[in-house]
């Protein structure tokens, strides 16, 4: 039993080790302890999806996890998408299709889309809705996001050929 514990994680390929309070959420761990502030916090009760990251390849709410629960895990955040400033095809698609306005929810959307397109390279409208139904955007009205996801799928398919 402890109130403080060492957490070792790999985030975007980099290993980190921090001794933290056990009550610290993964979102606060990433943002405050590691300085990875691209993951945003919108509601802290798991509804808005802004804080979505990938843990061991799966999208999760980083506000609904303790950092200690992620001990040993591989995590990917929005900072892990672009390569030395070159946008990932998903990011490129969101820019070209105007899939963002204020951009606060966007990191969560990008990570959810990353997971979706990883397992389903050519999703239907229905499948896109299903995977993004837990991500709230207050600006775009989702239409440009829908286009962005389809464009991203096409870009990724093109890259594979």
């Amino acid at each position: 039993m402890t109130m403080q514990q060492v957490v070792k994680v790999t985030v975007n390929g980099v290993s980190y080790e921090r001794n933290v309070e056990v009550r610290l959420t993964l979102a606060d761990f990433l943002r405050v302890e590691l300085g990875l502030t691209g993951t945003h916090v919108g509601c802290e009760h798991g509804v808005c999806g802004a804080c979505t990251v990938l843990m061991n390849g799966r999208s999760v709410r980083s506000c609904l996890m303790l950092a200690v629960q992620a001990d040993g895990a591989e995590i990917m955040t929005v900072e892990g998408l672009a390569d030395d400033g070159r946008l990932h095809p998903i990011q490129q698609a969101f820019m070209e299709e105007h899939g963002l306005q204020c951009g606060f929810c966007t990191p969560g959307f990008l990570m959810a889309v990353y997971e979706l397109l990883g397992s389903n390279p050519d999703p239907s409208d229905e499948e896109i809705r299903e995977s993004l139904g837990g991500q709230i955007c207050r600006c775009t009205g989702y239409q440009s996001i829908m286009r962005s996801v389809k464009s991203a799928a096409a870009k990724l398919a093109g890259a594979r050929v």
Binding site: T37, H40, E79, A82, L87, Q91, H98, L100, F104
Partner: peptide, 21 residues
């Protein structure tokens, strides 16, 4: 024209400095 936005690269990569950062 519907040009790409200059705001977007920063927002898409998580680099834009919102106050809580």
């Amino acid at each position: 024209r519907g040009v790409n936005r200059v705001e977007d690269p920063g927002l898409l990569t998580g680099r834009t400095e919102f106050v809580d950062n």
